[in-house]
Design a binder for these strands. Structure first.
Length: 586
RNA sequence: GCGCUUGUAGCUCAGCUGGAUAGAGCAUCGGCCUUCUAAGCCGAGGGUCGCAGGUUCGAGUCCUGCCAAGCGUGCCA
């Protein structure tokens, strides 16, 4: 409907251009909005006000000329000029009723669009280090990322969801060493645990399973393990040196093959847990992309060679630097350390080169807001690789600050003090979790009060929306219990009986659905869909309280049933998109 | 210090990219169940849109400068 009106406006502008009223070169921004106030009709445009100045006339006069050139269409019942020069469109009530038929015809497909057809988009999200279970901070990225991906798919994009697995690097060595030390404890050894190790209970479980499976195969005498290891922090030493020495010791005492076994025990177990957790949260991926793979197959070397060939690499202080400051970054960055090892950033350059090579039209990265300083250097790398940096869109998700009542909850994977996503899900339920996370704009700081979220109270708006769906189902059950049958055709014949205020408002809201979906997708803002759902549910509940659906008049009754079934369909379509259940009763 | 993000009702947040009288939920107060589920509905109160300028027909939205909060500013990942 909106697209149709925009088209008609284009026609009018084109006509005025040929008449010479408007400059032929002028680009006319067609800006059509839903009117906020029903007195202003259904749609409004500020076109005349925008074009008045270049056309050297006043807005109201120009508006009259535009209206005169808008082709007649049965969609429109009236066009008015209002205020300083708004053009207001009043939609023919008969066309408003059509939405009920359209929804019925399209069913689960209703609202989908094709604006992204033929374009490939990759969405990378969560990508948490596999050093521990996902916590509630990751949950927000998971909910937001999957919602963005699902929305893009709904409007026609070919979407690939990817998780970048940071399975290389020092953090993983710390994890492997932590597992090994806990394993030695399982074997009956007594030894201090490094304060920089991963202290979470899950590490003990991994160690327990390893011991159960492999017995004492990886056991080494404690004296050898601790011999000449620098003091830990609480002993007055340096915790970094302490843990690094322990990693080296583990590698030497176990040898490459056995170290690899322990390493894999940790990685595989945690990754399996993360996959399972996300699956249960309604999040699926097409690819799990391994950083180790990138290192092993020479991609990093290739990427650096390309940067070098483009003249962006230089050596200084024994390290290799990428001159990112020439491309907008605030300073240059090391890609190969003086000890010969490549940095995390080098992996990331290779990773993004790989993404580019896979031919996506748009690459979307969803990062925690603490990584925002990273954006300029990655964009710089893309430019240096000769790519169009606007292909990359980085969306930041602010971390949720956790409270229990008024008390702030400290979170640290290292210390093992955190609330896992799994815990949150089991307490609050998946539906409330997802709804709650996606409700807010992603870059908005979020206070997540666990006490509130875990209390199964009706304060959580997900129930409000689900209740609307359940109520429609309940009405249909009542119909059946009263021994009546729904007559779809009769109802469609008499949609014009839907003239109550609530009915008119609902028809308008239903017709907005596909517009909302498109905007939410294109702007990467799933919260817009949530707000739409609340509005629709609100209008339905008002309607429910104001009018009886199962009235004696068969025509009116069936018209109303068709309307509420349309509401149910749209609620279900949106909720399914967000991977939230649609209960038939509550 | 510099950079990014945020600042809207007592609290948590929307505000459709510059439009018409700034909106919800929670909380507070007052009403509505012998009729399709009261996890609901109806109504009331509550605002210097952080502050000060600027841009224009028109600013919560854009530009500048302050103020405040969070994050970042590693040869960590």
């Amino acid at each position: 409907m909106k697209h149709k009106l925009e088209y008609l406006l284009q026609q009018a502008v084109a006509a005025l251009k040929t008449q010479g009223v408007l400059d032929g070169e002028l680009v006319a921004p067609i800006n059509l909005e839903r009117a906020r106030d029903s007195q202003h009709g259904d749609f409004a445009t500020n076109l005349a006000m925008l074009l008045a100045k270049p056309a050297k006339t006043n807005p109201r006069q120009l508006a009259e000329k535009i209206i005169a050139e808008i082709p007649a269409d049965k969609l429109i019942s009236k066009i008015e000029i209002a205020g300083p020069g708004f053009i207001n469109f009043f939609i023919n009530p008969d066309s408003q009723f059509q939405i009920v038929k359209q929804i019925h015809a399209a069913g689960p497909e209703f609202g989908l669009s094709t604006i992204g057809a033929g374009k490939k988009v990759q969405v990378e999200f969560v990508s948490a280090n596999p050093t521990g279970p996902l916590h509630v901070g990751h949950g927000r990225g998971a909910a937001y990322g999957s919602a963005v991906a699902d929305l893009l798919q709904a409007v026609g994009f070919e979407v690939e969801r990817e998780y970048y697995v940071n399975d290389a690097g020092r953090q993983m060595d710390i994890l492997a060493t932590s597992v090994w030390l806990r394993y030695l404890e399982e074997c009956g050894e007594v030894l201090p645990f490094p304060c920089n190790g991963y202290r979470g209970e899950y590490v003990r479980e991994i160690a327990f399973n390893l011991h159960k499976k492999s017995g004492n195969e990886y056991r080494r005498p404690v004296e050898l393990v601790l011999e000449d290891i620098p003091a830990d922090e609480h002993q007055g030493g340096d915790k970094e040196k302490h843990i690094d020495a322990l990693i080296e010791r583990a590698k030497t005492l176990l040898g490459p093959a056995q170290y690899q076994d322990v390493f894999r025990a940790g990685l595989d177990d945690i990754l399996a847990d993360i996959k399972d957790d996300l699956q249960a949260f309604g999040v699926s991926y097409q690819h799990w992309f391994s950083e180790r793979l990138l290192m092993d197959n020479g991609s990093i070397q290739q990427a650096l060679q390309r940067l070098d060939a483009a003249g962006y690499l230089y050596k200084q202080d024994g390290a290799t630097w990428f001159a990112s400051s020439r491309l907008g970054d605030e300073k240059d960055r090391v890609v190969i350390r003086d000890n010969g090892q490549s940095t995390y950033f080098a992996s990331d350059i290779a990773y993004h080169m790989n993404k580019l090579d896979r031919g996506f039209d748009q690459i979307v990265n969803i990062w925690g807001a603490d990584h925002h300083g990273y954006i300029p250097r990655v964009k710089a790398a893309m430019q240096a690789l000769g790519a169009d940096e606007s292909k990359l869109k980085v969306l930041l998700v602010q971390f949720a600050v956790l409270y229990r009542g008024t008390e702030k909850v400290q979170m640290s994977t290292r210390s093992g003090e955190f609330v896992t996503l799994r815990q949150l899900r089991s307490e609050v339920g998946r539906d409330a979790c997802r709804f709650f996370y996606v409700m807010r704009k992603s870059e908005q700081h979020m206070d997540f009060d666990l006490k509130l979220a875990t209390s199964r109270s009706n304060e959580n708006p997900v129930y409000y929306v689900q209740y609307a769906h359940a109520r429609v189902c309940s009405v249909l059950r009542q119909l059946d219990e009263k021994g009546r049958e729904r007559n779809l055709h009769l109802g469609m014949e008499h949609l014009n009986l839907l003239t109550e205020d609530q009915e008119t408002a609902l028809l308008t809201t239903l017709s907005k659905y596909s517009e909302v979906l498109e905007r939410a997708a294109v702007q990467y803002e799933p919260h817009q869909l949530i707000h739409y759902l609340r509005e629709l549910a609100n209008q339905f509940h008002s309607y429910y309280n104001a009018h009886q659906f199962l009235v004696d008049d068969d025509k009116l009754c069936n018209a109303r049933l068709n309307l509420i079934c349309a509401i149910k369909q749209v609620l279900a379509n949106a909720l399914n998109l967000l991977k939230i259940h649609t209960p038939e009763s509550m």
